[in-house]
């Protein structure tokens, strides 16, 4: 495992901690930092030159790649909170897993929308059954299954348990899906950000723009998840009060 993988893995856990913390002020700082980096990222994404070969279509890359990163990150968090739930049976973990899945679903949808928009001018087709595209699609379908399973269950405790199991099995499945589809066929442009042996073939300004976008998307994602979690907590409290009144 190289340095970059270690940094990636560490950032997963840092993000999990921020999602998990209860501190109210965090939301305010997150919103502020999110807006600031997003502004910078948008500025950088628009004013940095594109590659000659791809032209303006290349700019969608700054939305596409961060969204893909977020959709995998979110599913990782679903896994973490699902495991936590099954061990400690704390309803808060279930709510966090649910919030991560819902917000992750939004970003995964973004990946599937921006991908074809880019692919059409560059590859000449809207869709190909390439390994990464297909893995994203399957990930999206697993998200759909997760959210559907939840919506068809009423008993809170049972819903939490069942969806935690799906969150865990689904997460284990994604790398295997990726591997099997990769063996099946592949066409996606190779990794251009990180290659073994350091930074890939992207020009330096593009790196800055991409990292800014990644940071901005991550902050916005954490902010969304935290607000969604708070909303779900309120919603459940409301349901409890309603149930109490009806006796």
């Amino acid at each position: 495992m190289g340095l970059y993988e270690l940094i990636f893995l560490a950032s997963f856990f840092v993000i999990a901690m921020i999602v998990w913390t209860r501190e109210e002020n965090v939301n305010r700082w997150l919103a502020l930092a999110g807006v600031a980096t997003l502004t910078f990222a948008v500025y950088a994404d628009i004013f940095i030159a594109t590659t000659a070969r791809q032209g303006v279509a290349q700019r969608i890359f700054y939305v596409h790649v961060p969204s893909a990163w977020i959709s995998f990150l979110a599913f990782f968090l679903v896994f973490i909170f699902s495991v936590r739930y099954l061990i400690w049976r704390n309803a808060a973990d279930d709510i966090r897993a649910y919030s991560c899945a819902e917000v992750g679903m939004v970003f995964c949808t973004l990946v599937l929308i921006t991908g074809p928009i880019w692919a059409h001018p560059v590859w000449g087709v809207w869709w190909t059954w390439d390994a990464r595209l297909t893995t994203s699609l399957i990930l999206w379908l697993i998200y759909v299954a997760y959210l559907m399973l939840r919506s068809y269950m009423t008993d809170q405790e049972q819903r939490a348990r069942f969806s935690a199991v799906l969150g865990i099995i689904g997460f284990i499945d994604v790398p295997i899906v990726h591997m099997s589809v990769k063996w099946w066929r592949t066409l996606h442009p190779g990794p251009v950000i990180m290659r073994s042996g350091g930074m890939g073939e992207l020009p330096a300004p593009m790196h800055i723009a991409l990292w800014a976008s990644l940071l901005a998307f991550t902050l916005v994602f954490i902010y969304f998840v935290r607000r969604r979690t708070a909303l779900e907590v309120l919603h459940e409290r409301l349901e409890a009060v309603r149930a109490e009144r009806e006796g």
Partner: peptide, 12 residues
């Protein structure tokens, strides 16, 4: 709906 996405590697 739940099972088929998970079984994609098996099918392939």
């Amino acid at each position: 709906v739940v099972l088929f996405p998970l079984l994609v590697p098996v099918l392939i």
